[in-house]
Design a protein around this nucleic acid. Structure first.
Length: 728
DNA sequence: ATTCCTGCCTTTTTT
DNA sequence: AGGCAGGAAT
């Protein structure tokens, strides 16, 4: 087989390019993965490079898996085996575990996901007594992540304002608590790998020797620390091949830094640039539409996709009355396509925000159309699954405070909040983990005897499971835990439809652990735990005879014969949150997102917008997205209902008044004057409460259980059952 | 210690 | 609208 035969000239140039830095601009559908896989195969088969010397990095496990399969197809399974193909994060996790001592980590560290991290941040912020309104945990968390993305430890942070000071305190203490918990977060995986390579010349040299050829997929999505990592590994004679498309950069808000593409040519002198502009996916009309949208971006590398597949059906643009009608249109379009020979699996519906999916799901259920929704609440994020996993993680690493804190009283075993608070405090004071504090409390007199006893029996349970880890398979261990912890019984005891669903989910987790044991090369508990925390939405996608529903973000990298994008409206797509005043780069990103949506379609594309949309509980008038105007007229067909002249052309763009009308329910539901008087309380009256003192009645709520809303100076507004306050 | 309720906030989420 | 967190009631 000749690896070069099936390639067009630029693809071939990229594959054949010898040593030295290479930057490939790979437009949508231009055969990017083909170039990477063929380049790997070419290096190995034609240039005599040992597969061992190759590192290929992707962003999702799915991409990594697909890449490996395609390389195997070219080289044979054995020929490809030694190539290191993985995501940034899994690669780093592997490096850190292999060099744990040099990295200053326990090799059994657990990886915290977003939610775990937030729990830890919250705990730290609370210890500092920070006001949640001034310092939302979410903000603190993102500042920490941002710092790590920029390769900055706490000491490298600005500390000029009180706010900066608080962030510094939280960051530093967070790091201490993470160390005590023997846990790392996503940012740590990358940042600590960089530190490892910077601090150990030996380790760095070893990996530079090993990874002679580095290939990076989706380069436009790399952030700073990833870029630094690549530079470190590439070394003095960089054989780095970066493949990306600046037009598909849609994760700027998550730290992806488009400067990496520009800096690449500066940092790697002599970079050869190849542009792949021939598209093998979409019809000419769809590409024209995509180009119309993306060419208006204020900042982009000039390029234009072309295809030999000219013509095709026009892009359809259709205005519906409201989101329910739009959902029905999903059903009718699906039916129409099926009668034309499309399978359900060929069709996808994209939306800007998850909240849009519900109406569509309802319509599909009513019409008996099978579908799968991706994203939103994910399996491993469900409370019961997180609980079960928390137990497993405690077995792997009992010092994991977040997970121990999560399950120490789940199911309820009489170790209440106050007890846990005290234990946390002791742990913080002594610089130990919650686990160690718990064990200490079992042996000293710091807790009441009853509490001590309950802590002791829980500790014994945990230690018992740890002792069994070696001789039980992970799935068997989980079954033992679910039994002995009482978790299973507690769920069964609830006996509600919800608890049944949760039991099923837990059973499914056991099932997926069993699957893992069967399929993994070397199944271990740690391996399973790592694989699930590093899993993405895309990894969950399965082929099947059903319609696909997902956000545009999730759709990146996929393709479908027919695509429908709903909600093509100003303020929704492009999205604009209630706060105004944002920079034009954000609009560019929305534009690129729209470009991504359009370029997923192979043959058919339907874009819809509605006149009236109910979203987030409010109904408001909606106006066609500006992106619709950018689609050339000879590539599109516009359907608007009669009597509703919402032409897409130079449209009646919304005037400058604020977005829609909003009705504040909390006021419209206030009882009218005259109804204010109940039970002797009336609005404006002074009342006294045992704890909050004297306050002013703002609202009286009649009913079987009358309540009053009272503003207590110094305590804020409370809604209290009326009999707990007296007139003052 | 546990359960119930109210008020909050709402984008996207490769790992 | 709906999910969640924190506070209040039992």
């Amino acid at each position: 087989m000749d690896l070069l035969d099936q390639l067009n000239p630029p693809q071939r140039a990229a594959v054949e390019h010898g040593d030295g830095p290479l930057l490939v601009f790979a437009g949508a559908g231009s055969g990017k993965t083909r170039v990477i896989t063929h380049r790997i195969a070419h290096k190995v088969a034609a240039c005599g490079v040992p597969a061992w010397n190759i590192l290929a990095v992707t962003f999702t496990n799915k991409a990594a898996k697909e890449m490996r399969q395609r390389v195997e197809r070219l080289l044979g399974t054995a020929g490809a085996r030694d190539a290191w193909i993985g995501t940034f994060h899994s690669t780093c996790a592997r490096l850190l575990r292999a060099n744990a001592a040099d990295a200053g980590l326990d090799p059994r560290f657990v990886i915290f996901d977003d939610a775990d991290q937030q729990a830890m941040v919250k705990r730290v912020a609370k210890d500092f007594g920070l006001d949640e309104r001034r310092f939302p945990p979410r903000m603190l968390q993102s500042r920490i992540n941002q710092a790590k993305q920029e390769c900055r430890g706490p000491e490298q942070l600005e500390r000029n304002s009180p706010v900066d000071g608080a962030i510094f305190d939280v960051y530093r203490t967070y790091e201490d608590r993470m160390a005590a918990a023997k846990a790392v977060d996503f940012g740590d995986l990358l940042y600590r790998t960089v530190l490892l390579l910077q601090n150990s010349a030996e380790v760095l040299a070893a990996y530079r020797r090993r990874f002679r050829h580095i290939l990076i997929d989706e380069f436009q999505d790399t952030n700073r620390v990833q870029y630094v990592l690549v530079k470190l590994l590439a070394g003095e004679a960089p054989n780095v091949c970066a493949v990306g498309d600046d037009d598909q950069s849609i994760y700027r808000w998550r730290g992806a830094d488009i400067r990496n593409i520009r800096d690449f040519q500066r940092d790697f002198p002599g970079t050869v640039v190849v542009k792949l502009e021939q598209n093998y996916r979409s019809t000419g009309r769809i590409l024209d539409a995509a180009h119309g949208v993306i060419s208006k971006a204020i900042e982009r590398e000039p390029k234009k996709l072309f295809t030999e597949n000219a013509g095709g059906s026009p892009v359809e643009i259709e205005t519906l009355a409201d989101e329910r009608t739009e959902a029905l249109r999903v059903v009718s379009w699906t039916r129409a396509l099926r009668s034309k020979g499309f399978e359900l699996g060929d069709i996808a519906v994209f939306y800007r925000v998850h909240a849009q999916s519900r109406v569509i799901e309802e319509a599909l259920r009513a019409a008996n159309v099978p579908y799968a929704v991706y994203g939103g609440m994910r399996f491993y994020e469900r409370a019961e699954i997180k609980d079960a996993i928390a137990y497993l993680r405690i077995v792997q690493n009992p010092h994991d405070d977040v997970d121990l804190g999560r399950i120490i009283n789940v199911p309820p075993r009489g170790i209440g909040k106050s007890t846990v608070d005290v234990l946390f405090e002791q742990a913080t004071n002594r610089g130990t983990s919650l686990h160690d504090a718990m064990c200490a409390a079992c042996g000293d007199g710091s807790m009441p005897a009853a509490t001590r006893k309950r802590l002791g029996s829980f500790r014994d349970l945990v230690h018992g499971w740890r002792a069994r880890e070696a001789d039980l398979s992970p799935a068997a261990l989980l079954r033992l835990i679910l039994d002995e912890s009482g978790y299973e019984k507690a769920l069964a005891g609830e006996d509600t439809p919800e608890s049944d669903a949760r039991s099923q989910n837990v059973a499914e987790l056991v099932g997926s652990l069993e699957d893992y044991e069967k399929t993994a090369e070397e199944p271990t508990l740690a391996g399973f735990l790592e694989s699930i925390t590093l899993q993405s939405v895309q990894d969950e996608i399965e082929e099947g005879d059903r319609l696909t529903l997902m956000t545009v973000h999730t759709a990146k990298g996929l393709e479908f014969r027919a695509v429908m994008v709903v909600g093509m409206e100003e303020d929704l797509f492009p999205f604009r949150s209630s706060q105004a005043g944002r920079d034009p780069h954000e609009m560019d990103e929305e534009r690129r997102l729209c470009y991504v949506a359009i370029t997923r379609a192979r043959e058919r594309l339907l874009l819809t917008n509605v006149g009236m949309r109910r979203l987030f509980g409010f109904e408001r008038e909606a106006f066609p997205s500006r992106f619709l105007e950018d689609i050339p007229e000879d590539s599109r067909t516009v359907y608007s209902p009669p009597g509703r002249p919402r032409s897409i052309g130079p449209l009646g763009r919304r005037s400058a008044e604020p977005a829609g009308r909003t009705i504040d329910r909390s006021y419209s539901q206030l009882p009218a004057t005259g109804e204010d008087d109940h039970l002797g309380f009336r609005v404006g009256q002074s009342v006294r409460h045992a704890r909050f003192g004297v306050g002013l009645v703002l609202r009286v709520e009649p009913g079987a259980d009358p309540k009053v809303s009272v503003d207590f100076p110094g305590h804020g507004t409370k809604t209290i059952v009326a009999r707990f306050v007296q007139p003052a």
